[in-house]
Simulated assay, not measured.
Amino acid sequence: MPAKSKAQQKAAGAALSAKRGETKMSDLQGASKSMVKSMSEKELHDMAATRRKGKPEHASKSD
Rank of each mutant, 00 (worst) to 15 (best):
Q8E: 15
K33E: 00
G30N: 03
K4E: 05
D63K: 14
A12E: 07
A31F: 05
A59N: 05
A12W: 11
L28M: 08
K10Q: 07
K42Q: 15
K4W: 06
S62L: 10
M25Q: 07
G13K: 09
M39K: 15
R20T: 08
A15P: 03
Q8V: 02
E57C: 00
S32A: 15
M35Y: 15
R51L: 00
A11N: 09
E57D: 13
A18R: 07
M47F: 05
M35F: 14
Q29F: 13
K53T: 03
D63Q: 12
M35S: 01
K61M: 03
L28D: 03
K19A: 13
A7Y: 03
A49R: 14
S40F: 14
E43G: 02
K53E: 07
L16M: 10
A48F: 11
R20V: 09
G13L: 05
T50E: 02
K10P: 01
S5I: 04
K61W: 09
G54C: 08
R51D: 07
K10M: 08
T23Y: 11
D63W: 15
A11K: 02
G13C: 14
L28H: 05
Q29N: 09
K19Y: 06
S17T: 10
S40G: 15
S32T: 10
A59Y: 05
A59H: 12
M47K: 14
S5Q: 01
S40C: 12
S40V: 14
L16V: 04
L44C: 12
S17K: 10
S38P: 00
P56A: 07
S5H: 01
K4T: 07
G54H: 13
S26Q: 06
S5T: 01
P56I: 09
K24D: 13
R52M: 07
D63E: 14
L28N: 03
S17R: 10
Q8T: 04
A3I: 01
S40I: 14
P56F: 08
L28I: 06
S5P: 03
D27Y: 08
H45G: 03
A59K: 11
D46W: 10
K24A: 13
A14R: 11
D63N: 09
V36H: 06
K6I: 15
D46A: 11
K61N: 00
A18F: 10
R20P: 00
E43R: 11
Q8Y: 07
E57F: 13
A48N: 11
D63L: 10
A11G: 01
A48T: 02
G54L: 09
A48L: 12
M35T: 02
M35E: 02
G54K: 10
L28T: 04
K53L: 07
Q8L: 08
S60D: 08
S62Q: 04
E41S: 15
K33G: 00
V36F: 13
G21Q: 05
M1Q: 03
H45F: 15
R51H: 02
A49Y: 09
K61S: 02
K10L: 08
A15F: 07
L16T: 01
H58A: 04
Q9K: 15
L28G: 00
S40H: 12
P2V: 01
E41R: 13
M25P: 00
A31T: 01
A7L: 11
A31E: 13
E22M: 10
R52V: 06
H45W: 15
S34T: 15
Q8G: 03
D63H: 13
M1L: 06
D27F: 07
A3Q: 02
A49T: 13
E41F: 11
K37V: 06
H58L: 12
S38G: 08
S40L: 12
